[in-house]
Amino acid sequence: MIFLRIILIFLTFSPESLFSKQGSGIVLVYHRFDEQKHPSTSISSQNFNEQLQYLKKNNYNVLPVSRLIDFFYDGYDLPPKSVFITIDDAFKSFYENAFPLLKNYNFPFSVFLSTGFVNKNRTSDFMDWKMLDELKKNKGEIYNHSDKHKSFIEYPSTDLIKDIETAKKKIEKNLGKSHKIISYPYGESNTFVRDIVKGLGYKIAFSQHSSPLHFKENKYNLPRFSINDKYGSLERFSQIINTRPMNISFVEIINDEKNNSFQLNLKTEFNLNKINCFINSGNLEKSINDNVLVVKVSNASKNQRYRLNCTLLKNSDVYWFGTMIIKHKNKFYF
């Protein structure tokens, strides 16, 4: 039996150095607002307003994602309680129902735009360039989310580059130049995609797996917590924005496509017995072998995104590690 082993991360830091020297933050991603017919991607403006009110009342530092370039490249620390608000796809419901709220709170935000869908037709679900320009003039940053909104892992290199560059040119033509920041359609990428994005000069890139962000992250696979009505209660929201990164010193993924399974081997300074892990699909088994947390996921037969989350409660703080494994055309991508 042939296994594919991929070592993703090798980190050497302690919880103390992680927080006292570099800082950490929570990146949130939203899509639609007050569109109940899309429950997996929509949140009510009432819930969204309660979340913004909570951030304001509790003195969170709501920052633009461009600040992360300073953090990752220029030696600037993130302040305590850093939160970043991002919106994918540029649906018109954001402009109509959420943008006024963000203006009221004077919060910065970032919209990731699939340029091929920009449309001034009144019946369109998407914003037009005039609306996007208004966002930019009111603390909104507009960034690349592709042109066609097709998963990047489906493209050959030439077509992928063309799609990203087409979106970049359209944004620059209509809104001017901006930082080289991108988010992947559906949050999907692999090593091939990330290498191309890096080669095109992008500084950071966002996925859609849940985890707090810290300095030792892969800058081309940054996590974001997806927020909708189902998982957007104020109680859960307050838990998310107060989570801390689980420091992982070593991650190895063993891919067994023949048996529709994969395995993660994790090393951390935390008590392995107290770590709980969850997967959105498939069967999960957790064990400990020679001070390594072994997480095996079987029955992963569907072509989909497998989101793995591991959490630990320590001294009233919740520590969180998350990652996403994609199965596409019966192959796993990490």
Rank of each mutant, 00 (worst) to 15 (best):
Y105G: 05
A98G: 11
L11A: 02
G25K: 03
H31R: 07
F3I: 15
K130I: 10
L8H: 01
I2H: 10
P39N: 04
Q53G: 05
L68H: 12
N61C: 12
K81G: 08
Q46F: 13
L132W: 05
S40T: 13
V111E: 04
I7E: 15
L132C: 05
F94Q: 01
N106L: 07
D70R: 05
V29Y: 06
K103W: 02
P80I: 13
R32Q: 15
G75W: 03
F112I: 02
H31A: 04
F71H: 08
Y95T: 08
R122I: 04
R32F: 05
S44T: 15
Y95N: 09
V65Y: 12
F126V: 07
D89C: 06
L63D: 07
I87M: 13
A90P: 06
I69R: 04
N49Q: 13
K21R: 14
S42F: 00
F107H: 09
S17M: 09
L68N: 10
V27Y: 12
P64C: 13
Y54W: 01
S20C: 03
Q53S: 13
L52D: 00
L11P: 00
D88S: 07
L28G: 02
T123A: 08
S114V: 00
L78W: 04
G75N: 08
S114Y: 00
N119M: 02
Y105L: 07
T123D: 07
N58V: 04
S110A: 15
L55E: 05
W129D: 09
S24A: 15
P100G: 05
E35S: 05
L55T: 08
V118C: 03
L132E: 06
F19L: 10
F72T: 11
L68E: 07
Y76I: 14
E96T: 11
E96Y: 02
I6D: 14
S24F: 15
V65N: 09
S82N: 12
K130G: 01
Q51F: 01
I6Q: 15
D89Q: 11
